[in-house]
């Protein structure tokens, strides 16, 4: 249970900070003495946090399902033809800067939450796809051969052998994807998605460093919280499936 302590503490801290930001007003007055408003009030921080998180969670869920399905398809006999291309797309796609992908979504889809969601899904898919391929391809060929030779159906081999063995690598891919998407969603404020990037952008536009700080702190906290959650999940996974390496 100890592994879950850091994410829980960070979550409590994040929620407390989001809810209690106005109480820190004196501090921000000291940072930004020349402004009337020193605490961002256009939206509540809790709402922005929730919206930000929702974008990331939805994109991670859709991205994971799509990427894992794609990875599975490309490594089955029926989809083998597509494997070289799919792995090329996964690696070339990741050289595209996320901001540029975000920017390209706007001309196609317009402003608001839809384009950012599409951009997050498409971009977030790539690391998961790459890791799914690496994980599935990394399964020892003799293990797969033994499983088939002992009488497992291809579906049972996938479910009971390949996915559990590739799971750790896939999880690492999801972690990378979510880390990137939290950052990209923050920049999404510039195309009209309401996220924790809003206070930062508003602060930059109005020269209000206090706003910038509030947004930046919460974004950083969010990233750390989610990352610690993945850290804990990976530890639990290792303990469950790789006991000999966990000591």
């Amino acid at each position: 249970m100890r592994v879950w302590l850091p994410p829980v503490l960070l979550t409590v801290l994040l929620c407390a900070l989001s809810a209690g930001m106005p109480t820190l007003e004196p501090l921000f007055e000291w940072v930004q003495p020349d402004k009337q408003n020193v605490v961002y009030e256009r939206e509540s921080f809790l709402f922005l946090l929730q919206n930000h998180l929702m974008l990331v969670v939805i994109s991670a869920l859709v991205g994971t399902v799509a990427a894992v399905a794609g990875g599975i398809f490309a490594t089955r006999p029926a989809g083998r033809d597509f494997l070289p291309l799919v792995s090329q797309i996964a690696s070339i796609g990741q050289t595209f800067p996320p901001v540029a992908v975000l920017a390209l979504a706007v001309p196609v889809l317009g402003f608001g939450e839809a384009p950012i969601l599409v951009a997050l899904i498409l971009y977030g898919l790539l690391p998961i796809l790459r890791n799914t391929l690496a994980g599935l391809e990394g399964v020892d060929a003799t293990v797969r051969q033994a499983a088939l030779g002992m009488g497992m159906s291809p579906f049972q081999v996938l479910l009971q052998v390949e996915l559990p063995l590739a799971g750790r690598v896939i999880l690492a891919g999801i972690r990378t994807s979510v880390t990137i998407n939290i950052a990209t969603a923050a920049i999404g404020s510039t195309i009209g998605a309401r996220t924790l990037g809003d206070p930062v952008i508003a602060g930059l536009v109005n020269g209000n460093t206090a706003y910038v700080l509030q947004g930046a702190i919460l974004i950083g906290m969010l990233a750390l919280t989610v990352d610690s959650l993945f850290e804990a999940a990976e530890r639990v996974w290792d303990r469950r499936f790789l006991p000999q390496t966990a000591g």
Partner: peptide
């Protein structure tokens, strides 16, 4: 094929044991 293989023991080089 699955029924066929379930009735045949299969041992290969490098064991093919499931590491998990």
């Amino acid at each position: 094929p699955e029924q066929l293989r379930l009735n045949m023991g299969y041992v290969i080089q490098g064991t093919g044991l499931f590491p998990h």
